[in-house]
Structures are given as C-alpha cells and as structure tokens.
Amino acid sequence: MSGLVFDIAHMFAGGLVLVSMMMLYQDRLYALLNVFALHSMVLTLSVAWQAFVQDAPHLYVTAAIALVFKAVIIPVALHRMIRQLGIHREIETVVGIGPTMLAGIGLVALAMVVMLRVTPEANPLAREDLAFALSVLLLGLLVMVTRRNAVSQVVGFMSLENGLVLAATGAKGMPLVVEISVAFSILIAFIVIGVFLFRIRERFDTVDVRALDDFKGRRRK
C-alpha cells in the first residue's frame, strides 16, 4: 500500500513540475492562463491526496482553497481583465523558447541535486515532495524573469506560490494557519497587482512593464 501511496503522491508532484514546464513555452496570454488553471488543479489533487495520506482533514480545506481561488476565480478574473484592458494577445518573451526550456531542465536538475543531498534522513515522501516543490518554485521565477508582460509575470508569481503550498503540504504536521496565510497572501498579492495593473493602464495605456521604466526616467549620469 505504502508503495502505491508514494507513487501517486510522486505522480501529482511530478505532474506539477510538468505543468510548470508547459508554462515556459506558452506565448499567448489566454493559453498561459489555462495552463495556470491546470497547474492549480494538479496542486489541488496533490494536496487532497496528501490530506488523505496523512489523515489530516484540514488539508482538504487547503485543497478547496486552491481549487476555488487559484483554479477558478483568479484565472477567470484575469481573463476578464485581459479582455477589459484589450491588451495584445502576444506575449513578448525575452529569451527564446529553446534556451528557456533548457534552463528549466537545468533548474529542475539543480533542485533535485540540492534537495536530495541536504535531506538524506527525511521521510522519502516529504523529501521527493520538497525537491519537486523547489523545482516548481524555480520554474515560476523563470517564468517571471523571461516575460515582459505584467500579467504573465503575475501568473509566474502565482505558480511560484503553488510551489510553496506544495512544499508546505508535503511536510507532515504543518498547522492549518500556515496554509490559510499562504492562500491569503496570494489573494492579497493578486489584488495588489490587479490594482497596479489598472493604474498602469490609466497612466500609460499599456500593461507592458517597460512603460514603468520610461516613467522612472532613463539613466541619469
């Protein structure tokens, strides 16, 4: 039984990493949002499985929060926002897809090496989970770094938070307070960044963060 338990948890966590990799090569905003919704779905499943395995009912709450907020409300809201803003659908990636994917593979390998080396005594389930969570986190950062568009940076940031939730639920005995605070921090970040986007829209008529640099002024010398 424990072998099966382990394999299923492994599958979900690995699935999360896979979806993160999928995010790297999306060059349309709507597609990116759909992949993010899928990302949050996989997170929900993973957290629910952890709740079942660890016999920790409070994790179901976390799973529900992930499902409702991240898989439904936030993607829908961002869809609406993109439509309202009428921003162009093309994502301007800074680095090409090939190098980005290679960098992503390198980051996953790095996360594995680091985590498996520093946690030799930990419970294997938590250990694998942590390694995958770190991969998801690094890939989320990579998404943020390789995009110019503010909305896709927000998405990258939220996938990063998904990685944090994965890490938090993988370790046994985390109190519920932590998960709720993590979920709410994402919500707050979403609200803040949403407001931020509308302000950019009012001021600069674009959601391209390069506009901010124009506002800040060129290098003074």
Binding site: V94, L141, M144, V145, V209, R210, L212, D213, K216, G217
Partner: peptide
Amino acid sequence: QFLTIRRYLSLVF
C-alpha cells in the same frame, strides 16, 4: 538604480 523590474527579478533569481 535604473534597471527594469524584470532585471531586478533576474538578479534575485
């Protein structure tokens, strides 16, 4: 002081 947001993020990354 005069980098883009993305470059700051890249530095952190």
